[in-house]
Design a protein around this nucleic acid. Structure first.
Lengths: 192, 192
DNA sequence: ACTGGTATTAGTACCAAGTGCTAATCCGGA
DNA sequence: TCCGGATTAGCACTTGGTACTAATACCAGT
């Protein structure tokens, strides 16, 4: 096998499995450990321990991210409890259908639904029913702005209606009407 | 600081930041490196390099998982294209509200919506509208079974209706009606 | 046939972050 | 005062490397 080809395959191997030591690689390619080291040097591939460090750091990062996004999908940029709220959600390649590049519906729903939960000044609001309209396809790179408004007219002490409108560059891409169930007693809450 | 307390804090520190070496820890607790080593031994905490290995392995695992779950939320266990499909979704602590332990609505939606997409034998089906009912709270540990049925009666060549009913132990916890938009031309597809 | 350049291999010294072990020291209580 | 747990120190050894030097192999050009 020529040198170039070996180095190309080396990069592929390590991308798939960053846990391989130089010795394991040398057996895989039937060359000496030193050759592997020179190859890594030429390709700028760091040693095993460094590779694991960066992979592990990526985990920690991802875990922090998924934790924060567990609370609210998207970043809340403005909120007036029990009245209205606004959140921003930046769509990336992770959120879209591979073939079409169009955002999967559940991400838009998640942003809207978690905003509806957040806008209610309640220990715990649950969604009871919702009516959704996906109006225009959203793509990777789009910045979705969701605006939630609590509909006081239709709400009573146990049921609250929240309307969410999501836009991309001022064009409405999604609307949702959420009927929420609130667990805490409003009369009690006044006393807090 | 007593030994017990130091060991407790050691575990906390390493859980937060597995990248700390024995030397860094010894400075943090103002004891010798050897003491840290003995503490780790007593607590069964592996060395830095081993810790990074497991953290890195967790990443790889998580990345594979998130990739597969990108396609469909939940595992499809039965499917008859353009007719019906069934998927299973096991709820974990990651899917629930911390305070109440009740599953966040968007996970139930994601399972149902991605099943509705999957059941349609189409290159790309998009959700246009949907009407959701969250009937009973779902908790960590519950196994949610979603059944999607394509409603042929109401469907035409450009609009397809899919009804999804999700149950936990035979009790309906969620229902969703999805109106889907299909991009490919059905008449052409017959020829494939 | 000789020379040059590239590729490969071998070997050495050294490093970080350890394990495993022994020995010394400290400190408090019966 | 002596005992025992806690702590510290020191040394040999391990892994998986880096950095460097030297030797060898092979192929092309002249």
């Amino acid at each position: 096998m020529p040198k170039r080809e070996r180095q190309r395959q080396l990069e592929v191997s390590l991308e798939q499995n960053p846990f391989l030591t130089d010795e394991e690689l040398s057996k895989q390619f039937n060359v000496s450990v030193q050759t592997i080291r020179l190859d890594r040097l030429e390709c700028g591939i760091p040693e095993l321990r460094e590779r694991l460090k960066t992979v592990a750091a990526r985990t920690i990062d991802a875990e922090v991210k998924s934790l924060q996004s567990d609370e609210v999908i998207g970043d809340i940029i403005d909120i007036e409890l029990d009245k209205r709220a606004v959140s921003i959600f930046d769509v990336t390649d992770d959120h879209v259908f591979r073939r079409s590049g169009i955002t999967r519906g559940h991400h838009l729903f998640a942003q809207a639904n978690s905003l509806a939960v957040a806008v209610l000044d309640d220990d715990l609001a649950l969604t009871v029913t919702s009516d959704l309209h996906f109006l225009k396809p959203v793509r990777s790179g789009d910045r979705v702005i969701a605006r939630a408004i609590v509909d006081k007219e239709r709400s009573n002490d146990k049921r609250t209606f929240v309307d969410v409108i999501s836009t991309v560059e001022n064009e409405t891409v999604f609307t949702g009407e959420f009927q929420m169930y609130q667990t805490t007693d409003h009369s009690r809450r006044e006393l807090r």
